[in-house]
Design a protein around this nucleic acid. Structure first.
Lengths: 200, 200
DNA sequence: CACTAAAACGGAGGTGCCTCCGTTTATTTA
DNA sequence: TAAATAAACGGAGGCACCTCCGTTTTAGTG
C-alpha cells in the first residue's frame, strides 16, 4: 500500500536510494558473487571492493559485516536459480529443461555448501534464511517436473520430493576434485530413470 | 595401559613436553582465563601473549586457533568448579558448602554465556564439549546437595535437577549491570528455601 | 662437563579488518 | 541554471591475525 517505488531490486530499506549508491551496491554484489564462487567465502573484502571499483568504506556502508554480504549473494543465487527454471521451461522441451536445470542445481548446492559454513552462526538468529529459500527452490523444481510429466516426457509417478531425495547424495558427497563430474553423471542417470517409462 | 606419564596436567598429546614448553603453555592458559574474563572472548591474542611473557608465535604453536584456546580455558573453568566442590565440602558445613559453591556457580554461568557465543561454531563439530562438562558440573552439585540433605542441613525432598532448574533464571537474565547482585540474591533465596523444613 | 640434535621460542612482516572523516556528487530548491 | 544541502564516497590509518624462519634453549650422549 505504502510502496512508492517501482525499482524492486534488492534494497535494504524501502527508502529510495541515490542512483550512484544503487549502482555501487549492485556492482558489489555482482563482484562478490563471482569472487566468493572463485575464492570461497573467506575472500578478501578489500579485494572485492577494489574489483568493484569502489572504496572499502563503500562496501562497509552497504554491508556492515561479511555475513550481510554473503547473505545477499546467497539470496541472489536462489533468485537466479528460480528465474532460470522459468526461462529454461520457456526455451526447451520440458525434459531437457528439467535436465539443464538440475545441472545448474548442482552449482547451487556447491554454493550452498560453501556458504553454510560461514553462515552457521547467522542461521541461529535468522533461521528463516534457509527454510524459505529452499522452499522456493523446491517449488521451482516441482514446476519443471510437473510440466515434463504433463508433456509425457518423463514418467508421471514421481514428484519433486522424490527427485530432491535422489539428489541428496550430492550434498553429502565429500569435496573430491571430481565432485562436479560425478554430480553431473548422477543427474544424467537420474534423468534416464525419469525418462524410462514415460507415457507408460 | 600404555600411559607413561604421571604429569596428568592438561596436555594436548600424551607425549612428554619439554619443561619450558609446559611452563609457557600453563602461563598462557592462566593469562587467557583472566583476560577472557575481563575483556571478553574477543580479547587480542597478541595482548595475551605479551602478558604471558611469550611471543605470539608461541601462543599459536600451542593453540592453532582462538577456539582451541577458548576451549581449554573453558575446560579449566569446569575443572576448577568441580574441584571447588570437593574442597568446600571438606572445609565447611554441608549447607554452607552448597551455598558458597552456588555463588561460584554464578561466575561459571557468566563465563559459559560468554564462551557459548564464540564456541557456537565449534559446538557443531565437537558437540561433546558442553554435554560432558555440564554432566560433570551437575554431578558436583548433586554430591553437595546429597551431603547437605544427609546431614539434615537442608530438606531432603529436592534433588540436583530441581535446584539446577531453579537456577535456570540466571541463564536467561539479561546482561544488566546488577546481574551479578541479583544472581547472588537468587542463590540466597534458594538456600533459605532449602534450609526451611530441614529435618522435617 | 662439552657437544649435538631436536624442540621450542619469538617477533618481523605481510595481509585483512574496519572506522573515521575530509572530499565529492546527486538531488532539491530558488 | 545556480546555489545549498544531504547523501555517498573512498582511502589512510590503526589494530589484529597468523606465518615463517633465524635464534635460543633443553635434554640427551660420550
Amino acid at each position: 500500500m505504502s510502496d512508492q517505488e517501482m525499482t524492486t531490486r534488492e534494497a535494504p530499506a524501502p527508502k529510495a536510494m541515490r542512483a550512484d549508491a544503487q549502482r555501487n551496491r549492485d556492482k558489489l554484489v555482482e563482484v562478490a558473487a563471482q569472487t566468493f564462487a572463485a575464492d570461497g567465502v573467506d575472500a578478501s573484502l578489500e579485494e572485492i571492493a577494489k574489483r568493484a571499483g569502489v572504496g572499502i568504506g563503500t562496501l562497509y556502508r552497504h554491508f556492515p559485516t561479511r555475513e550481510h554480504l554473503v547473505e545477499v549473494v546467497y539470496r541472489r543465487e536462489v533468485e537466479g536459480l528460480c528465474h532460470a527454471a522459468e526461462e529454461l521451461a520457456r526455451e526447451h522441451p520440458a525434459d531437457v529443461a528439467l535436465e539443464l536445470w538440475m545441472q545448474r542445481f548442482v552449482d547451487y548446492i556447491a554454493t550452498k555448501r560453501g556458504l553454510a559454513t560461514s553462515l552457521r552462526l547467522l542461521l541461529t538468529t535468522n533461521s528463516t534464511l534457509f527454510s524459505d529459500t529452499s522452499g522456493r527452490v523446491s517449488g521451482a523444481m516441482r514446476s519443471l517436473i510437473e510440466a515434463a510429466a504433463a508433456a509425457g516426457k518423463i514418467r508421471a509417478d514421481v514428484d519433486a520430493s522424490d527427485v530432491m531425495h535422489a539428489l541428496g547424495g550430492i550434498y553429502s558427497a565429500p569435496n573430491t576434485p571430481d565432485w562436479r563430474d560425478r554430480s553431473g553423471r548422477l543427474v544424467k542417470l537420474l534423468m534416464d530413470g525419469l525418462r524410462f517409462g514415460a507415457k507408460g
